[in-house]
Amino acid sequence: MNIIACVRQTPDTETVIKINGAANGIELDGVKLVLGPYDEYALEAAAQIKEKSGGEVTAVTVGGEKAAETLRHCLAVGADKAVHINDSGADDALAIATALANQIKKLPHDLVFVSNKGTDSDRGAVGPMLGELLGLPYVGLVTEIEVEGGSATVSRDVEGGAKEKFKVTLPAVICAQKGVRGEPRYASLPAIMKAKKKPIETVSPEGDLASLRKVQVEKLEYPPARPPGRMVPGESAADKAKELVRLLRSEAKVI
């Protein structure tokens, strides 16, 4: 089983995000970059499936020089080798999916994992794009996966409390949801030592990525501050209850 895990470096969730002076990006100075927390779940699933069925896990990332650090980490938590597609262009789903697809086409692949989202752009778009570009079936937000022979059985939760179960012929692209195969493992000391001997291949992206970057960030701003609190008016308890429910529904939009 040849498994590809597409991973990405993202700011640590605890990091304080500061918008840069030009308001078109964030201050990267002092921002701790880590392997995307959702990617860790995907990688864990890949590692477990490999451990059961044999084969190899290749971690692939698109990013600038620093992205290689992320791959080192992947090699310590289950990946056997890694490919760094060196590209420091703007973070754009279509460009990333294209660069990944062009690389993955050259690698043996039975199962391609992508993760739900990064902590930065929150978009979850790379997975379905990758499925389309590779011409492979795609299932998003998978919470359970079993691989048997040439197919995978996957389940996922959809809105309204339903759970869908699919049988997918491999190769396929799967987007792993948090916890798909339990909590990601820690990098053990021996694994960290072994990771140093595993190969990271650095390649240039293929394809005209610049022309694919059709989503340009014009400006970044902080969300508006929370409006000051207020008292819910009403004569009786019943009036207040009615008004509160209305406010929660149509103003705060939390129910």
Partner: peptide, 10 residues
């Protein structure tokens, strides 16, 4: 070094 950082982070 990157390795030491990885150990510390883990």
């Amino acid at each position: 070094s990157d390795d030491h950082k990885m150990v510390r982070d883990m």
